[in-house]
């Protein structure tokens, strides 16, 4: 049994999600190799070699790999799979982009967003935005898995794997990188933020949504989210949406302001470590899952909260 883990990195630093995927790979009970696909990523490969339990690190470099073009990544990985029983990647946007393409090329099922590896063919994964968990057994000879890395603890370091440079695939014939723009926001990205401040329809207008939430988010270093109701009402852009039809988040702290707690919203944030709900309606469903509920009008509550935060 040998498992390949695709590293998550930005060519200069290895992200911790890689180590978490290694922890998931360890449950397969075999050799673990890490694939670093990128460009000028020798430093990343060296960092990957230090993860505990890793046999070797494969380094493949080309512009198309660095740009995460799925065609290139799939070509590379499919070419390596003769030597592996499974390939795992953190369920990042790059991982989610490439993994199904790899699975189809291998004519096997994709096991996506895996929360638990019970054994080398049995996995637990969320369905219905985490409102149900399914345990599935794969009959495929090879497994292609994306890992919900928040569900695993890092593998730790202390490894001393060798780094082996391997050939890069040809550039994809039919897709080309054009540009990339990192969102130049002072605020963290919603999907990975440690703190999320989220507003609902009770905020009443786009102006109010931004003027109420932004100072609080800035004070807490938080990302801003919104309920679907607030998005549908035009108070917040669609990509702020937290919920089954939006983004699924699991921050340390989620502050829901003027959000009643529709089922589809709860599906997107119920895995937050601590949930705070501020709503003037004491019967709002959000209070049933909030760790700290405060029955108050946001108009007075948020200024008070800002003051208390100092």
């Amino acid at each position: 049994m040998a498992v390949l883990v695709i590293a998550d990195h930005d060519n200069s630093a290895l992200r911790d999600s890689t180590s978490k995927a290694v922890a998931a790979a360890a449950k397969f009970g075999g050799d673990i190799d890490i694939l670093v696909a990128g460009e000028n990523a020798a430093g990343v490969a060296a960092a990957a070699a230090k993860i505990a339990g890793v046999r070797k690190v494969l380094l493949s470099e080309s512009p198309a790999l660095s740009q995460n073009l799925a065609e290139a990544v799939a070509d590379l990985v499919v070419g390596l799979m003769d030597g592996y029983d499974a390939v795992l990647t953190p369920a990042t946007s790059a991982g989610k982009n490439a993994a199904p393409r790899i699975a189809a090329r291998l004519d096997v099922a994709l096991l996506s967003d895996v929360l638990e590896v019970e054994d080398a063919s049995t996995f637990v994964r969320p369905i219905y935005a985490g409102n149900a968990l399914e345990t599935v057994r794969s009959s495929d000879a090879k497994k292609v898995v994306t890992v919900r890395t928040t569900a695993f603890k890092s593998a730790g370091d202390g490894g001393s794997a060798t780094v082996e440079t391997i050939a890069a695939p040809a550039a994809p014939a039919h897709s080309r990188f054009v540009s990339e723009s990192v969102v130049a926001s002072e605020r963290p990205e919603l999907a990975g933020a440690k703190v999320v401040v989220s507003g609902g329809r009770a905020l009443g207008s786009s102006e109010e949504f931004h003027s109420v939430l932004e100072p609080l988010a800035d004070r807490l270093g938080a990302a801003i989210g919104a309920s679907r109701a607030a998005v549908d009402a035009g108070y917040a852009p669609n990509d702020y949406q937290v919920g089954q039809t939006g983004k699924v988040v699991a921050p340390d702290l989620y502050i829901a302001i003027g959000i009643s707690g529709a089922i589809q919203h709860l599906a997107g944030m119920k895995d937050a470590k601590v949930i705070v709900a501020i709503n003037k309606d004491a019967d709002a469903p959000i209070f049933q899952i909030a760790d700290y509920g405060w029955v108050a009008d946001y108009k007075t509550a948020i200024p008070e909260l800002m003051q208390a935060l100092g």
């Binding site: 149900a132 399914e134 794969s138 119920k270 949930i275 209070f287 760790d291 700290y292």
Partner: peptide, 29 residues
């Protein structure tokens, strides 16, 4: 290719406590 062995509910979240003031909330957080 997959056999669904079981479908279960995720662990339920319990309602926590109510706070009465911003100072109380911040202190608890």
């Amino acid at each position: 290719r997959l056999t669904v062995l079981k479908v279960t509910e995720p662990p339920k979240r319990q309602a926590g406590i109510k706070v009465e003031s911003a100072a109380d909330l911040v202190a608890r957080l």
